[in-house]
Amino acid sequence: MSARDERREDGGRALEPPSVVTSLVVLAALLALTLATVALAYVDLGTVGHVVVGLAIAGAKAGLVMGFFMHLGHEGRLPRLFAGFGFTWLAFLVLFVVIDVVTR
């Protein structure tokens, strides 16, 4: 872990301009998922089912946007680490608030 490496560290492909074809495929996938989530909203899955499905599809879309459009897939470890921090710390907040509210 020398200082030299960390200065310019990336996943190796971060300096390539984004590919038009890949981006189009990702966009198509995002639009398809959007239609899927709207369609599934009209199917009876129960409240819990809706929350799970809605969250899962939104998570998948967010993953696509972050992985490709936000080129997290091309980045080195640091940007991924900090992206992870955001969600992990949010999980801390949710976890402890839920512990209190559920057992109050």
């Binding site: 990336d10 980045e75 992206a83």
Partner: peptide
């Protein structure tokens, strides 16, 4: 490359902040 890596890291730190 150095500048790109720094801007990208900075933005991801900012994004972590926005997530919260």
């Amino acid at each position: 490359a150095h500048q790109r890596a720094a801007v990208s890291l900075g933005m991801w730190v900012f994004i972590a902040q926005e997530v919260l």
